[in-house]
Structures are given as structure tokens and as C-alpha cells.
Amino acid sequence: MRHIDTFGICSVLVGLCLFIAAISTWIAPDGAYTTNMAQALQAPSWQHWMGTDKLGRDVMARIIDGMRLSVFTALLIVLIMTTIGTLAGALAGWFGGWVEAVVMRCVDIMLAFPGVVLAIAIAGILGGSITNAVLALTVVGWAKYARMVRSLVLKIKHEEYMQAVIMQGAKTGVMLSRHILPNVIPLVIVTAALDIGTMMLEVAGLSFLGFGAQPPTAEWGLMINEGRQYLQVAPWLLAFPGAAVLIVVTIFNVWSDALRDKLDPRES
């Protein structure tokens, strides 16, 4: 795949996903939320390309509408957790002492644990809603970034140019924002990009379990859960939302992989 510009193609596809998600409200065919019992559980046809669900809602309209929730929720989670993780890690690495001790003990606790389980526990106990799902995944996800950024900051701190900056008497804020963060951010971005797809899967998983989006929201994981009992009679209720998750997550995963190759050619 060397001769093909994977990154370019995937960037276009990612852009397309974002674009569809942004304008989904206007382009989704009618019927994402209008129930019509007379049309319930119809197989895919010219009128309803992906069939209808138990309440007669158009599956394709719901999938297009659900794109917004999946894509933007995942982006939001990644944004929040990288921000918190980067700040916490930078402060821990820079100041050391008790700041570092507190931050790193929290990180140890979070990483000594399969994140998914804790996310399920948090979202489940707090009650199912998309906000709680975001909260749960953020609480679990920041630790990885804090650990990574801290070790990077420690390394940079001992570089000669940094010692020179310190001796010049630069202010802490200036040092962090001008000299430390620009060196840290590329790696954070690469890692964050890899996490977008993962977060989409996690949000869909939580919603599937009933700890994320609630009915009647059009969310892919929730749609699969609602279609589960019709596995025998209406498999299209599962096939299409699942395919939607698969396609969008694959696009983001391949894109982030290509991004990493581009920014960090050592691994491939």
C-alpha cells in the first residue's frame, strides 16, 4: 500500500464522515423519529432502503441521524481526556514533588484496571445517559495521556536547551506553553487519533448495554440492542447499524494509523 496515498484517501473519508455528521439533521430522510405502526418491521425496499424498525421508523434515516451522536461524542471524549491528561501529566512532570505523587498515584489506580469495566460501573451506577457515558469514559481515559506526557516532560526538562531556558529565568507559564507543550503535542495527537475509533466502539457498547444513549435516541449501539429481539424476523435492524459502526470506525482507525506513519516513520 506504499504507492497509494493511504493518508490522503483516509483524510478525505474522515472529512466526509465529519461533514455528514455535521449536516445529518438536514440530509437524513424523514422518519428518524416519526413512528408509523402500519409500516413496522418492513424489509428493505425502494421506499425504505434499510427497512423499518418495530415502530415503523426508517432505519436509514436513523443511521444517518445517529452519525452525529457517534462521531461528535467520540471527538468530545477524546478532546476532554487528552486535555486533562496532558495538563495533569505536564504539571506532574514539571513540578515533581507532591503534585507528581498525587497525579501518578491516581494514574496508577486508573491503569491498574481494565478501563471498560470501570466505565461500565461508573455509567451504570450513575444511571444511563449519554452525558454519564462521556463522563465515565473520560474518567477512565485521561490516565494514559498523563503517564505519557509526564515521561516526555521529564525527558525534555533535562535537555540542554531547556536548562538554558530555565537559567534565563523564564516564567513557568512561558516555559510550559512555549517550550514543553509544542514538543509533547505531536505524540499526544497521534495517540488521540488512535483513540477516536476506540471511543466510538465504547460509546456504542455502553449504549448497547443500556448505560449510554436512551430511547428514542437514534444511536447505533442502542439501535442494535433494540433490534436484538427481532434477530430472527428482521435481521436488517442489526445488520445496517452494525455495518455503519464498522465502516466509520474502520475509516478513523486506518486514518489514524496512516497519520502515525506520517508523523512517526520509525514504526510501520
Binding site: G205, F208, G221, I224, L238, A239, V245, T250
Partner: peptide, 12 residues
């Protein structure tokens, strides 16, 4: 394989 939700593989 890494992009398919496990619950979907399972149901399929």
C-alpha cells in the same frame, strides 16, 4: 477485526 463492535460480531 479491531473496528467491529464485539456485540455485533456476536449477534451475527
Amino acid at each position: 477485526a479491531v473496528s467491529i463492535p464485539t456485540f455485533w460480531t456476536g449477534l451475527m
